[in-house]
Computed example of a mutant assay.
Amino acid sequence: MASRKRSEGFAFFLPVVGAMLVMPPIVMLFDVDADVFGIPLIVAYMFAVWLFLVVASLVLTRGLPRAGADQAELEKKTVDKP
């Protein structure tokens, strides 16, 4: 149960962290005259943030049970009781 609450907490803060990472003050830190494999650093940063958010959400969704699982488990417990 604690693992579920922890995953729900991460799932709540993931969009907040994503929004903070794409705020102009932070993005402008990467607006320098540098390239990463021929790609401007600011573009590489934005792609890295996007990739991080996609992978983090994938990991979180794999860890969370389906929405109906709790309801089905609750119904099973109530049916089993005499």
Rank of each mutant, 00 (worst) to 15 (best):
V32S: 14
E75L: 15
A44M: 11
D33G: 11
M46W: 04
L21Q: 04
I42P: 00
K76T: 07
M28S: 15
F10P: 00
A69W: 06
S3P: 04
S7H: 13
M1T: 13
R66T: 12
I42Y: 06
V55H: 05
P82Y: 06
L53N: 05
A44N: 04
F47H: 01
A72V: 02
F37V: 11
D80M: 06
V59E: 12
V55F: 09
M20V: 13
G18C: 08
V32Q: 14
S3R: 12
G18S: 07
P25F: 11
F30M: 10
P65E: 15
A72Y: 00
D70S: 12
G63N: 03
V27C: 02
A72D: 11
V79E: 03
I26V: 15
L21W: 03
P65R: 14
P15L: 10
K5A: 12
A11F: 10
Q71H: 13
M20A: 14
V17R: 02
M28I: 06
D70Y: 08
A2F: 12
D70L: 09
A69S: 11
A72M: 04
Q71L: 15
P82I: 05
P40M: 08
P82S: 09
G18L: 07
V27A: 09
V17Q: 04
R62D: 06
P25S: 14
V17D: 05
L64V: 11
A48N: 10
T61E: 14
I42V: 15
D35K: 04
A56M: 15
S57C: 02
L14D: 02
A69L: 10
G38T: 08
R66N: 15
M20C: 14
G18T: 08
A11R: 09
V59K: 12
V43K: 11
L74C: 05
V32L: 14
F13G: 02
P65D: 13
M1N: 09
P15I: 06
D80Q: 10
L41R: 03
I39V: 14
M23N: 02
F37H: 05
L29I: 06
Y45F: 14
E73S: 03
E73K: 03
F30K: 03
D70K: 11
G63A: 03
G68N: 06
K5Y: 06
